[in-house]
Design a protein around this nucleic acid. Structure first.
Lengths: 328, 328
DNA sequence: TCATCAATTTGCAACGTTGAAAATGAAGTT
DNA sequence: AACTTCATTTTCAACGTTGCAAATTGATGA
């Protein structure tokens, strides 16, 4: 195991200056073909690999971005991470992934690590429990926020119009004939949920349906178990809803499974609408209706924003009708 | 926007040498309390953040490891990534995640990026289409292989005994009363699948059941769709199997959904066994029996192995009986 | 032939940190 | 008083790269 070759080794081998080798390696203009060939041959011969740390030190950039999500194991964020990694790759960037657990302390810790860990060329973050202004303030690198925050002016941000999307989703249930529609989601501190709740409200009020508290179910987590729990609560109601709008697909999947285990049919007894368009939802029984967005576009936009000036992108969404809301 | 503070700034501010500041920042022994206090106060005052690139250059290590999986969006690898990130964090390491798509070219490209992208302190990789020796050969960093490769001597490797696990899973189906058991999985180039197939064979032969080719289904991909496709094939068989062993949970989930859509009951008509213990399987209808391993332990072991000497760890597995194989 | 100019190549210094070893200084020993 | 010991602090020189500006080369035109 011998020392890695450096620019100087190549330079000596070729009998040229270190700087010239660097020029070749970095594809600078004004390099003669002869030099280039000679140097590249030598690089291959000696197995030259640039020392990224040195390059980073000198250039001040790292070629890496950070991605902070609540939980990479969660299907939604897994899909998001994939999209971000692909988008970053297209820009020649690597992605260091970290997760926060979705708690305030967890997010604070992840931010610390991001500040400390590396010189990121930027950080993409999906915050849950911490306000973007607060995050931007304590970060030493440019941050782009991914997801859905209402009105944080000036902070770079990519997402969809959650309120409008939730309203459209709820309206879809109404158009399917539902008249008593429950909402299931997180509430506490989660501004995304607030927006979706507002959309749900707006849809009901838009057709003169009243929103009563007994139709609102706050869940304990963003997972299937929480959805299943909501299912028991809903199945046991005196006046059972004929449709449920879940703020995320994972909740909806847990809910569907719970309802069915309790002998209710989806969508005949209860229609179910999710949000996120997880692949898993398309394969559930019945397949889950959901709100979709273009994740790849979302990721590309976020990565682009890290190096650009734009600060706010609202991407389109789409309500997908599948088995869980298909009447008849 | 002013320049970031460096060790030298702190040194000047405190009237001590740069090296002393470094000593404090790095918690070296033999630092007087007075110096330490003075320096730390100054660091806070000037908002000092160490320059990681410089540190990396000087120390020759980066505090980062690479993780290369076929697809971070795949639930199994998403869960794995989470575990690796957690394990790495405990060692003070960050994880740069990349995916290969599971093809030979994709893996080659990911390896290139890993070699180039950064000076990793190590790379953890779950190869699919490329042989570990081949990978180890072209990597400039230490690699630990995650998953299940048969007999690659000397290469650091963590996994379970796939053959034994598959045998146990199949035996579980036999003990449930199945006599005609199909196997569904990838075949091509995927040595993990080979091992599982071998285990399946061994279990059948162990009780005198013959393994016929019509019971072996090769799928086109590692996803639900492929499982659903297998379902049609199986449902349409002249002599239909009474149980199916799928080499992964995702296949099993697609299969179950497919079978049910075709009017077959699981497990009454066909019992289904998966492999991987995805959270999703526990919430399927019926819940999916599967082979489990301790992912956190797997990840910890892999990370540990990057800095250690050990080269081979076989972790225990466990067959979980759930609804999809529960008779009566 | 010589000045001019563009294309190509080079030297120097710095990026911010840490390893190695040397210097300092206080306390203890002979 | 001279010598050792030990904790603490400092000096010096890299680590491998690239920005800058200057130097060299070779060709062109006067």
């Amino acid at each position: 195991m011998t020392r890695r070759a450096t620019l100087m080794d190549i330079a000596k081998d070729c009998g040229v200056s270190v700087r010239s080798v660097s020029n070749v390696v970095n594809d600078q203009p004004h390099v003669s073909k002869a030099l280039k060939d000679k140097v590249l041959a030598s690089c291959r011969k000696l197995g030259y690999q640039p020392n990224i740390a040195a390059r980073n030190l000198r250039s001040g950039r790292s070629g890496m971005i950070g991605l902070i999500v609540p939980d990479v194991g969660h299907p939604y964020f897994a899909a998001l991470a994939r999209a971000v990694i692909d988008a970053a790759r297209d820009e020649g960037l690597g992605v260091l992934v970290d997760h926060s657990g979705g708690t305030r302390e967890g997010e604070a810790a992840a931010l610390m690590r991001a500040n400390f860990q590396g010189q990121f060329d930027g950080v993409i973050i999906s915050p849950v429990a911490t306000r973007p202004e607060e995050i931007a303030e304590q970060m030493s690198t440019k941050c782009v926020f991914l997801g859905a925050y209402a009105d944080q002016d000036g902070l770079p941000h990519v997402g969809i119009d959650n309120r409008a999307a939730a309203e459209a989703a709820t309206r879809h249930l109404i158009e399917g004939g539902a008249t008593r529609i429950a909402a299931v989601g997180l509430r506490d501190r989660d501004s995304m949920a607030d927006l979706r709740l507002a959309g749900y409200r707006a849809a009901l009020e838009g057709v003169g349906l009243s929103v009563t508290d007994d139709l609102l179910f706050t869940v304990s987590g963003p997972d299937r178990a929480a959805g299943a729990q909501a299912a028991s609560a809903i199945a046991g109601m005196r006046r059972r809803p004929d449709a449920v709008f879940c703020f995320t697909d994972l909740l909806a999947l847990g809910l569907m499974q719970g309802l069915q285990a309790l002998g209710l049919r989806v969508p005949q007894d209860v229609a179910v609408m999710g949000f996120d368009d997880l692949e898993e939802g398309a394969y559930a029984t019945p397949s889950l209706s959901s709100v979709a967005l273009d994740r790849e576009e979302l990721a590309r936009e976020a990565v682009r924003m890290l190096s650009g000036e734009a600060t706010r992108q609202v991407l389109p969404h789409q309500v997908l009708e599948r088995g869980s809301t298909r009447s008849g």
